[in-house]
Design a protein around this nucleic acid. Sequence first.
DNA 1: TTTTATTTTTGAACAGTGCTCAATACATTT
DNA 2: AAATGTATTGAGCACTGTTCAAAAATAAAA
Lengths: 201, 201
Amino acid sequence: MSIAERKQKEKQEMSKLILDGARKIFLEKGYEHTSMRNIANEINYSPGSLYFYYKDKSEIFHELHEEGFHILMGRLKVLAKVADPFERLKAIGLIFIDFAQDHRDYYNLMFIVDERVQPAKPGFQIAQVAISYLAGVLEECQAKGRFKGMDLEYLTFMFLSSVHGICALFCKDRTSSFINKTNEELMLNGYDCFLALLERG
Amino acid sequence: MSIAERKQKEKQEMSKLILDGARKIFLEKGYEHTSMRNIANEINYSPGSLYFYYKDKSEIFHELHEEGFHILMGRLKVLAKVADPFERLKAIGLIFIDFAQDHRDYYNLMFIVDERVQPAKPGFQIAQVAISYLAGVLEECQAKGRFKGMDLEYLTFMFLSSVHGICALFCKDRTSSFINKTNEELMLNGYDCFLALLERG
DNA sequence: TTTTATTTTTGAACAGTGCTCAATACATTT
DNA sequence: AAATGTATTGAGCACTGTTCAAAAATAAAA
């Protein structure tokens, strides 16, 4: 078993090497503009080799898609210490916005890129965990008297949509119609506006 | 001048022919998956010909980008008859959502596709008209006592973001995490949730 | 009408894409 | 040492946006 184990380990290491290369190029040029040849070149392997470890480009997408959600979830975990659910809710949106600014390409990959996200893949499942978490926070808010009479699932979708809208407009450079305002100002103050609404709801 | 005029007319007609072909293919397969050869094939011309009428693919993008905003603006014009500004505001969001559902590809082109939208192009300017219109409606709402103390520009961005978020999640198939709800339900009820917030703000 | 000039159209070519697969090289087992 | 199994290669396929010399079509001049 020892040599079979080593083989398996080597295969894992090679997969990681490819993924590291893919991540690097993709963070430089964005997912759509990263080619398999670029990745192969980066790690000094032939293009064909990648297909021995990954079925296709989409499989690499799913790997990084999942990775992105892990990073995001890592940031969300900090909120466990925030006692008030509404404060936690407010922070969630900010974390999304910060994440989109810090990891524009991951954000793009996770929420925008044209790739069918398959429910079987772990990335999809973590996404659902994240959504469940958000729903839980909103439920707590409702338990404290906020958002009365609103359906939890739609409320969750609405919150996510609003925050995503801010991030998506930023990621795809559709903010330039708002001249003399930086992206930073627009996103943060826009979100504050949204929070003001939530406060009153 | 007569023959020069005719030449010009012919050139316009040819441009239109190309654009019609482009639109057809692009509505079938989506912008990113429409190739210049596909378009050329559709209208029975050689690929090189397209470049006699359009500088590059991006120029066709801008043409259709503008077109999309014209369609959207056409739908928004109906709202002139709605007296109450808040009712008009509510309708604007619905029109966006309907538009995204009816013209998913146009919506994608206008708000999501990876193409630098140049301020010089007419498409950009119509976009700004649309935003100004939205800002105007929100201003009227404020005049009637709504959204007190909120900055108009950020409020506008926030409204747009929230509606866009709903449409963008739909367009890029990121709604599947909300199982046992159709896109229709999710978008409409999610938007209703948002409206409920606005109502209280 | 014939010749010259201009405009339009073509399709091959370039460098790139995702991906496949026979051939090759290496590692392990017999 | 020979045979088996695993890993790697790079040429090749059909595609992409784009360019450009050559050809065809049209218009202007002789």
